[in-house]
């Protein structure tokens, strides 16, 4: 099967592309949450604010890196289809989200 781009074996359902965009959307959601976190940390102004604010920035950067790694894996797909999402990768993304919530709880309480 040859798609419009002329690449053999290109999926007509554009599954890798849709998955790439899903990672982008999720990174955007993470950015919104991180911006709100930094705003809260700055308003907090205390010691925990100065610790948690940078921690949230680091979590955001880690999520961005994770998404980038996955997007690169999707882009460099062999004809048999891209490699499946490694379970460790998924677990790290979810645990990063949980860590962001823990940071939020520290700031709110």
């Amino acid at each position: 099967m040859t798609g419009p781009a002329g690449r053999p074996g290109r999926d007509p359902g554009l599954q890798p592309e849709r998955t790439r965009l899903a990672w982008r959307r999720t990174t955007l959601s993470c950015t919104v949450a991180a911006v709100l976190a930094v705003r809260t940390a700055l308003h907090h102004g205390s010691v925990s604010g100065y610790v948690v604010g940078p921690a949230c920035c680091a979590l955001w950067a880690a999520f961005l890196a994770l998404a980038q790694v996955r997007i690169r894996a999707l882009a460099s797909a062999p004809a048999a289809g891209p490699r499946r999402l490694p379970a460790r990768h998924a677990a790290l993304a979810a645990l990063g989200t949980v860590a962001l919530a823990v940071c939020a709880a520290v700031l709110v309480v």
């Binding site: 999926d11 998955t19 962001l100 700031l107």
Partner: peptide, 29 residues
């Protein structure tokens, strides 16, 4: 592999829901 990718997108959609809820927590505060 397309089924696995669909499963991955569903996972990401749930993760976005989680991030939106966390953002909502910050917003309430």
């Amino acid at each position: 592999y397309r089924f696995s990718l669909a499963n991955e997108r569903t996972f990401l959609a749930w993760l976005r829901t989680a991030l939106a809820l966390i953002g909502g927590g910050f917003a309430v505060d």
